[in-house]
Design a binder for these strands. Structure first.
Lengths: 185, 185
DNA sequence: GGTGATGTATGGAATATTCATTCCATTTTA
DNA sequence: TAAAATGGAATGAATATTCCATACATCACC
């Protein structure tokens, strides 16, 4: 019954299907079972509708990954916990994942908006900092290392959702272990 | 003086700057210093202009990576050679890289077209096959492992080109070594 | 070589379509 | 009963594609 949610959900589904630029507002209205008026009542224009959806999902992502996180675990345990949570979330919510990817890679989107969403990385940063301090992780720029790890794992999720591969629960752990092998010193 | 090349070059530059959907044909014409007629003489429509550009670049990529490749080297040497070549090419040609990424992530593009471009992986496949046969690489689906390695390295290139990190020549070798550490058994 | 004829390439104006956004009459809510 | 929310038609701008008049190249024949 919440119109705004209906609109956001319809937007998510349609944009994942057809892309941001090929999704007309009129079609969003139809899918959300409403009219133009309602949409423009909640969102001043298409761009802010899309970027509000982005922040909504980024918040959801952060919350899910951070939930149950125990910062007193060992470096390796925390490493595994965080990446595992991320993969599980992205596998469980294909729409969320594909929208976030598409938004991130869209050049027509305000670049400032994109990086604002990536602020939940505090915990992850700390894991890598601790790992280097304890000399169990390789040296080097932490932003680069996080990009490296995340690249390998996100890439698997992406290939899974485009049906190029079919990830199985037990192999996921192997890939997280491999990501660890890459960075451990 | 070759009109077709001019058009493809202008398209590449503009699409990387503003995105596929926000690049009007009229602007391509202007940038290529020509008119609509010329463009539609060479390409039946916008979509085929863009996908011809994609295949053009994919062919270029394959040629560059395969050039000088010696299939008699050891598994590890071949692994390093191929990935190093790929990274170097993508670092040296930001426009090529960013266009390929953008095309790959665009849902409005025929999905069949995309995967047709990714078939030059024969040599890479062979490296991983040999590596597993010799038991120096971890077991598992080869498509997945290639996705894993490529994800980590491409991700670094991407962050480099969005100025989030600044890759240095010598650290690149470290990351390739790390990618090897991830997969070696 | 010169001359015309035939087809191809080109530029850009005209057309048709596709939307984002606006507007307003009507309905719902408080 | 006033204010807010809604649906959907009307508007206007953007732009892919078509069309055509002109320029250019290629070649046949003298």
């Amino acid at each position: 019954m919440n119109k705004k949610e209906q609109i956001l959900n319809a937007t998510l589904k349609l944009i994942v299907q057809k892309g941001i630029e090929s999704t007309p507002m009129s079609e969003i209205a139809k899918a959300a079972d409403t009219g133009m008026g309602a949409i423009y009542n909640y969102f001043p224009n298409k761009e802010s509708l899309v970027s509000e959806l982005y922040f909504h999902l980024k918040t959801k992502e952060s919350a899910i990954i951070a939930y149950g996180y125990d910062s007193s675990l060992s470096v390796k345990q925390r490493f595994i916990y965080l990446w595992k949570k991320m993969i599980s979330y992205f596998l469980a919510e294909p729409l969320d994942f594909m929208f976030l990817e598409q938004f991130y890679y869209s050049p027509s989107i305000d670049p400032v908006a994109k990086h604002n969403g990536s602020l939940y990385l505090k915990d992850l940063d700390q894991v890598y900092l601790d790992g280097q301090a304890q000399q169990i992780m390789k040296e080097g720029d932490i932003k680069e290392w996080i990009g490296f790890t995340s690249g390998s794992l996100v890439s698997l999720v992406k290939l899974h959702h485009s049906n190029y591969i079919r990830l199985k629960e037990e192999t996921i752990n192997n890939y997280i272990q491999a990501a660890w092998d890459a960075i451990k010193s």
